[in-house]
Every structure is written in C-alpha cells, then in structure tokens.
Design a protein around this nucleic acid. Structure first.
Lengths: 216, 216
DNA sequence: TTAATAAATTAAGTATACCTAAGTTTGTTT
DNA sequence: AAACAAACTTAGGTATACTTAATTTATTAA
C-alpha cells in the first residue's frame, strides 16, 4: 500500500455513498487525472482484492478496501482535531495539512494521538471519527440545499474540501450546532435566505450544498 | 523536491561532517541502494544546484541544498520531541516515526508545533534543533569511545539510528546528562567499563561509538 | 435495428527511481 | 611506468503512475 493506492481507495470511499457504484470518469474527475490512468489502476486494485470491478460498469470497495479507506479517514480526522485544537490552525487550513499527515502516520501513532485528544467523536467540520475497529456512526444529515421556506434546522457538518466555504462561514459567524431558519427559498436559483442568532445571511445553492443540517 | 531527493540531501548532510566530501559508495551504503543509482541522482541534484559534484571525486551540499537538509533535520527533531513528551512514545521508537512525518509537514505546521512545544533546544537524544532560519548550535561532543581510563564525562547525545542502543541504555538506567567515569578502558577490544550513579556498566566499542559525551 | 454518442479500455509513450552488468577513471603498488 | 583493484559512471532494463490517441463497449435516439 503506497500513497497513490491509498488515495484511490479513499476517494472511491467518498464517492460511493453519493453515487452507489463508482465509475471511471467520476473518480478521474475527483483525482484530477485521466480516465485512462484510473482504468489501469482500477484493474490493479481489483487484482489485489481492494475493489470489485465490473468492466465498463463501475466498481466498489471490498471489505478489505473499505477497511483501508476508513482507517485513512480516521487518521485524517484525528489529525484535523489536533491541528485545530492544539496548534490553533484555522478551520479552513486543517484539511490540506491532514491530507499529507494521514499517509505518514502509523496506526500506533494515531492510537496515541487519539488518546492525547481524549477520543474525540467528531472532526472540526462535524464529520464523525471512526474508531480503531473502523466503526463509524451513520450520517443522518441532509444538505441545507434541501431545506424549504420556513424550515428550522441545526448545522451539523460542513464540507472541508473548499476552504472558501469555511472562510465564508467564519466571516458570517456561522458555526457548527448553530440553529438556522429558512426565511425564503428562491426557486429561480435555489438560493436560501436564512436567519440565525447573529443575523440574516444569504446562501447560494452551491454553498447550501456544502452545508449539512439536521432538521428540527 | 520530493521525498526521494529530500532523503538524498538529508543523508549527504549527515555524512558530510564525518568525512568531508561525500562519496558515491558512502551514500549508497547509507541509503541501502546501488552505487549506480546514487551516481545518477547525484548528477540530477547537481544539475538542480543542490550539491556541488566533482565526478569521480565526491560531492558536497551547496548552501541551497544544505538549507533543505537542515530544515528536514529541524522537522525531524521537533516531531521527536512531540512524540516523546506528549504521546509518551518510547525513546527508541520516535526516530522511525519522525522519519515519515518530517516529509509530510509544512513549514507552517512545524512553526506551530515548535511554539506548542515551547521552542525546545534539543531532541530526545540530545541533538540540537535548528531554528527556523537554519541556525544550529555547533556540536562539541566526542564519542565515549575516545575516553581514556580515569576520564570523567557527561552524556550529551545518543545516536538514534539503532533502537537497540537506546533500549540497552534505558535498561541500564543511563540517561542524558548523567555523569560517567571510566573505570577501565581495555585496549584489546576498545571496550569500556564505566561507573555512574546507578552502578557500573560495560560498553562495547560499538556501543561507545554511539554515545557522545562532554569531558569534565 | 442500426447509427450516433458517450464512456471505458487498450496501446504507445514519458518521467522517476531503482536495478545489474559493462566500461571507465583513479590511485596505489610493485 | 605499467598493472591492478577499487570506486565510479554509463548503458540497458524494470516497475510505477501518469499522459494522449486509438479502439472497444454500452447506451440512446432515429
């Protein structure tokens, strides 16, 4: 297992829940490489038993592949907690730094770091942290983009892949566990006008798709 | 700069003070790869201005190459302090874990970690930690193997590359800054019989070459 | 039911970092 | 000064992970 293979598995894992079986082009897009390169690596990963591939149809992780992906997610999220809480890293920068650290830390290191952090349950963006056996609490959130006018909800997660989203939310003063109420959903562009304790703000559809909430 | 090139520079840096100009075979030995591979990479590093190479004669780091090597040493040693002091890693395991982390942490991360650790001056094995400008305090220690019968000295550094050395010293109860006195140096095999606060122990020549002291 | 199109795969080629084997240079030894 | 051995470099080859271009497969639309 090297960094490249690990990145494939991790990204397959992150696409899977959204689109069921993963396709070559979807993964190529996510990894920003050619479909041809993905196609080759998919055969390789399949040969090693990390994924189950049906040529021309798509592929999905095996238990073995999923275990590796979840372990990486665990390492990533534990590092994020450390960076934010102990090194005072800003919200929007922990993701890219953890992206490197996750591939360079042994299971023992993560076990010790987890203990040092007192076994956090969520990362700074609200994502659950898998335990060392790979158990992860199921995601019950929905994108804020799915809310309707008048809905009340609590912000539970924020996508960490686009620092701009995090920067915008910080500036607006929106935090995890804040309660929001949809004043109006504009059907023309699917944008939302929302109210929360520090005032009103506007969320574009794209932004609202990166914020995950639990309805009240 | 990738991991491989970084490892070349770091290892050239570590050989340089011992043997002046570094040779192909010396580095091949250290990196555990063929002399041919080193020869190729030396041309490459030379072309990029990281080392100055005189074919068939040897090579040495340029200022540019040295800066990169020192920065890696800094990262390595800062990680070692963190692992030992905050994650309670055993003395003999911090080196190999830091070996990976040093290549996966940005300068900003190390700056923040350095602050978190309150700017340590030495790593757990007594090696000085370079500051962010690359300044590093000169090494004034000598190998314990150079001591003579009757000499008194203080242990200042221990080589961290062989975990066995560290395990042996831990078991014997010898720590950094302990004062030792040479009871006898046996000329036949260059071994030492030494006395320190917890009793007497025996150091083979090989062991004594991995322990660095300051004479009283 | 075939033709068009989109997606996936295969083929051929590149860069990196290694290898072994062969050839070259250096310094020593006689 | 020639011969020798050790050290070094070059040549040719491999695996990995990518590229673009060509081909194959699957789907959709006429």
């Amino acid at each position: 297992m090297n960094r490249s293979l690990e990145d494939y598995l991790k990204n397959i894992y992150s696409i899977q829940p959204i689109s069921g079986r993963v396709t070559t082009s979807l993964l190529a897009d996510k990894l920003n490489i050619s479909a041809a390169a993905v196609s080759e690596m998919v055969s390789k990963l399949s040969g090693k038993g990390y994924i189950k591939n049906i040529p021309y149809k798509g592929f999905e992780l095996t238990k073995k592949g999923e275990a590796i992906a979840i372990n990486l997610v665990r390492k990533h999220r534990i590092w994020e907690v450390f960076l934010l809480k102990h090194l005072n890293y800003p919200w929007d920068k922990v993701h890219s730094e953890a992206e490197n650290l996750e591939h360079s830390s042994s299971d023992e290191l993560i076990l010790r770091l987890d203990k040092f952090l007192d076994y956090p349950k969520f990362d700074p963006h609200g994502h659950p942290i898998p335990d060392k056996e790979g158990n992860i609490s199921p995601d019950k959130t929905i994108p804020a983009a799915d809310l309707k006018s008048g809905d009340t909800a609590v912000i539970k997660q924020v996508s960490d892949e686009n620092p701009e989203v995090l920067i915008y939310l910080s500036k607006a003063g929106l935090k995890l566990n804040d309660e929001i109420k949809v004043i109006e959903k504009i059907n023309f562009d699917n944008s939302l006008s929302i109210h929360f304790k520090s005032g009103n703000i506007f969320l574009s559809e794209k932004l609202a798709k990166n914020i995950f909430v639990r309805k009240k």
